[in-house]
Design a protein around this nucleic acid. Structure first.
Lengths: 248, 248
DNA sequence: GGGGCACGTTGACCTGGATCAAAGGCTTCC
DNA sequence: GGAAGCCTTTGATCCAGGTCAACGTGCCCC
C-alpha cells in the first residue's frame, strides 16, 4: 500500500509504524540528523516495505539496480560469486544498516543479498533519494557519510584478511558483532549467531573447521561460552588482547 | 597560489592547463558526463593543485578531513595502521582516481596516502563539492557512482584476500594494473611498478618473498618478463586462466 | 664515480590452517 | 513424532606460504 502525505488526524497506527519519523532505528539509519520537516519529506520517499523470508534473496548479482534498502528488522548476508564457482561473504547486515550501495556504480547489483532470518526492509528508490538529497543538505551529507563508512569498514575487513591469524579474525568478528548489537540495545555479551560456521569462515577467509576449532579454543580459555549458535562473551578484554597482542 | 574566477581574456596558459575542462583525464575523473556550463562551474571549484614528492604524505590517518583529491599525475598508495604496528596497503591509485573518500565518514582521514613517485593532485574542497552536486545532477550522480565503485573494488580485494592462492592474487594484481594503464592510454603489456615487493605483498596479504617467488615462477612459465620493477606481460590469457582455473 | 644501502632473489626449513575423514546433535519437515 | 539431512565438532595428516638466512644488484646521494 503506497502511502501519501497525510494530515495529523488521518494518521493510523500502521502509518505510524511504517514512517521513518517514528522508527526507532532513526539514529542508526538514513534519517540521522534530519529535522521534523525534512523527516516528513523522507517519509514520503520511504513508503514501501518488503518482507523477505529466511533464505530468500533480497536481490541477486546482475539484477538492475533501482533502490537501496534499509533493514527494518532481521539479518542479512551479502556475497560475491567468482566465475569459477568460489564465493565469499562480503558482509553481514543488521537492522538500521543499508543494503545495495554496491549497485549504484554500474546500475546493476554486484552481489547477492540473502536474508538469514525472516526480515523486513524499507525500499528507498535511488533516483528519488538523489532528488531529495539535492534539497536536504543534512540528508545528502549523511548519505555520503554512510557510503564512506562502508568504504572504511571494507578497509577494516581487508586488514583482517590480510594481516590477522585465524583466532584474531574470529575475535575481531565477535567484538564487532557485540558492539553492533549493543548499539541496537541488545545485550553486548549474549547473542544468537544467525549464520553458519561456513558463512563465518567465508567472511573471515577461513574454513569452517578452523572457525569451529577457534570457537572451541576460546571456550577452553574461558573467553566465551558457545553452544551451537548461542554465544556468550565472557571476557571482552581477553578477546581484545588476543586480537592486537598476538603476533606483534 | 590560490586562483580566483577569471574572465575569458584573463585566461593564461597555466589556467588552461589547470582546468578540468582541459584535462585529458576528464573521462576517468570527476567531470565525467558534464556539459560545458557544468564543467566551467566545476573548474571554479577545483582550482588549486598540490605537488607531492615521492615518499611524502598527501594526508595521514587522523588528520581532519576537508578535501578529496583527484590525482592529476603520479602514483599513490593508501595504507592503514593497526595499534600493534601491523599495517596494510589498502590500494594503489593512479591518475584520474580520487583519494580521500574514506575521510567523509568521520571527518578525519582513516588511512595514509603516500606518493610513490613525484605526483600532483587537484584539491577538491568537500563542502563545496557537496554544494555543487546539489546543483548539478550529473555531478551528483557521478560522484555517487565513484563512491560505489570504490565499494565494489574493495569487495573484489576482499574476494582476492579471502579465496585466492598466492599466484592467483599476483595474476589478478597484474591484470588489474594492466587494465588501468590501458584505460590511461599506456601500454597494457609493459610498465614499471612504482611499488616495492613488500608493498605488493602487503596489498595482497603475502610476504615479500612469496611475491618475489611468484614473479620468478611466472617468468619461468613464460607468462611475464620481470626485471626488478620493469614488467612485460607476455601471456594475458595465461594469467587469466591461472587466476580462475587453479583451485576449482 | 664510488660507496652504501635499500631492494630483490633464492634456498632450507617450519607451521598454521587446509584437507580428509568420521561421528554426533539439531532442526525441520513430513 | 520420527527420519533425513544439515550443521558442528574433533582427530589425523598434509602442504602453501611464512620465516630465517645469505647473497646479489642496482640506484642514489654525496
Amino acid at each position: 500500500m503506497p502511502l501519501k502525505k497525510t494530515s495529523a488526524q488521518e494518521i493510523t497506527l500502521s502509518v505510524i509504524k511504517t514512517a521513518c519519523s517514528n522508527c526507532n532505528l532513526q539514529e542508526l539509519c538514513l534519517p540521522y540528523g534530519l529535522n521534523e520537516t525534512e523527516m516528513s519529506k523522507l517519509d514520503e520517499l520511504v513508503s514501501t516495505r518488503r518482507k523477505i523470508k529466511r533464505g530468500d534473496h533480497l536481490y541477486r548479482a546482475g539484477e538492475a539496480f533501482e533502490s537501496i534498502y534499509a533493514i527494518r528488522a532481521g539479518f542479512f548476508k551479502t556475497d560475491v560469486l567468482l566465475e569459477d564457482g568460489r564465493d565469499q561473504v562480503t558482509g553481514f547486515q543488521m537492522a538500521g544498516e543499508l543494503l545495495g550501495l554496491d549497485g549504484i556504480s554500474t546500475e546493476h547489483h554486484s552481489c547477492n543479498a540473502v536474508a538469514l532470518e525472516d526480515s523486513e526492509v524499507c525500499i528507498i528508490p535511488f533516483p528519488r533519494l538523489e532528488g531529495l538529497s539535492r534539497e536536504i543538505v543534512a540528508l545528502q551529507h549523511h548519505f555520503h557519510k554512510v557510503m564512506s563508512r562502508e568504504i572504511v569498514r571494507d578497509h577494516g575487513v581487508m586488514m583482517l584478511l590480510g594481516t590477522m591469524r585465524a583466532e584474531e579474525r574470529l575475535a575481531a568478528f565477535l567484538l564487532n558483532l557485540s558492539q553492533r548489537f549493543t548499539a541496537r540495545g541488545y545485550s553486548h555479551a549474549e547473542f544468537y549467531l544467525r549464520m553458519t560456521r561456513e558463512e563465518i569462515g567465508s567472511y573471515l577467509g577461513l574454513k569452517l573447521e578452523t572457525v569451529s576449532r577457534a570457537f572451541s579454543r576460546f571456550q577452553e580459555e574461558g573467553l566465551i561460552a558457545v553452544q551451537q549458535k548461542h554465544i556468550r562473551i565472557l571476557d571482552i578484554p581477553g578477546l581484545k588482547k588476543l586480537m592486537t597482542h598476538q603476533s606483534a
